[in-house]
Design a protein around this nucleic acid. Structure first.
Lengths: 151, 151
DNA sequence: TATTGTTATACTCTATAACTATA
DNA sequence: TATAGTTATAGAGTATAACAATA
């Protein structure tokens, strides 16, 4: 009995898991957003950092790293890049000269607004088939997932 | 006027985007699954490959790469690893000696079943707060997202 | 010529240890 | 001593170009 060569590949065994759908959706959404941010010469990381700085002017690099869920060392080059492009500034905090207070420049504020508008436009297209209720239900369901870590 | 130091960091500006919630959920789900697979000495990539091979015995490396959404060169070391652990075998296809037909060994089948059972148990815990309808709605909503690429 | 699998390589994202300067 | 930022480094994951064997 000859074992036949596979004609088409089925991912049914993986599609039974919700996590598979979430990871695939995330991958699509992430690559779409990366394309959207490209004209602004922003990557996911520089975009997230710029938005958080613009909306939380004066925060420290440590605080930003926590908010972004990355380690402090990995933030250094991200801030370097934003600073070299004069989108944010590192201000010494006179009351604690170890920390930098991160603040957006005017250009940083403007680029942040433009990039967020593009992000919103992208979302509108991606979510075109979902009404507001379905959109809220999606967010609620995603938030209802709980990590079984503390078990 | 002194600019105040930021006390707490708000991610409201990012949380307005559904993509942000999807990427965060994906990150949580992915790290949970990685922990679950650790006892089997499987990574996300070796797990996906093993399941797809076990459920599509005889497929080629090119076919598998397409199914996994990665480039062919990146699959080589993944299959090397599974082959060295004797979980899958590379069989020469006599009718086309360029291709390898990938097949699971008995041990590969068994490990696949055990890992998938652990994955299912994990999902049950993660989705504990969602009823079947909400679960299906979540998958439907994720599938309804469409990539605006062809635009 | 085109395709399968492979090698070599590079880039991004992530993580850890150790340093400096301040506190 | 502890913390903020930094440097150096290493590990994944991913992408492209080019090669040998085969079609």
């Amino acid at each position: 009995m000859r074992k036949p060569r596979q004609d088409s590949v089925s991912d049914d065994a993986l599609r039974q898991f919700v996590g598979y759908h979430i990871r695939r959706a995330s991958s699509v959404v992430q690559s779409d957003l990366a394309s959207t941010l490209k004209p602004f010469e922003l990557r996911m990381l520089t975009y997230s950092a710029l938005v958080l700085i613009a909306k939380n002017s004066g925060l420290s690099q440590s605080q930003l790293a926590v908010a972004m869920g990355i380690e402090r060392p990995n933030l250094v080059m991200i801030i370097d890049e934003l600073e070299q492009r004069e989108l944010v500034v590192r201000e010494r905090d006179p009351s604690d000269r170890r920390v930098y207070a991160l603040r957006p420049t005017l250009a940083g504020q403007e680029l942040c607004d433009e990039a967020m508008a593009a992000n919103a436009a992208l979302e509108a297209r991606v979510l075109a088939d979902l009404d507001a209720a379905a959109r809220d239900a999606l967010i609620a369901a995603l938030s209802a997932l709980h990590s079984p870590k503390p078990t």
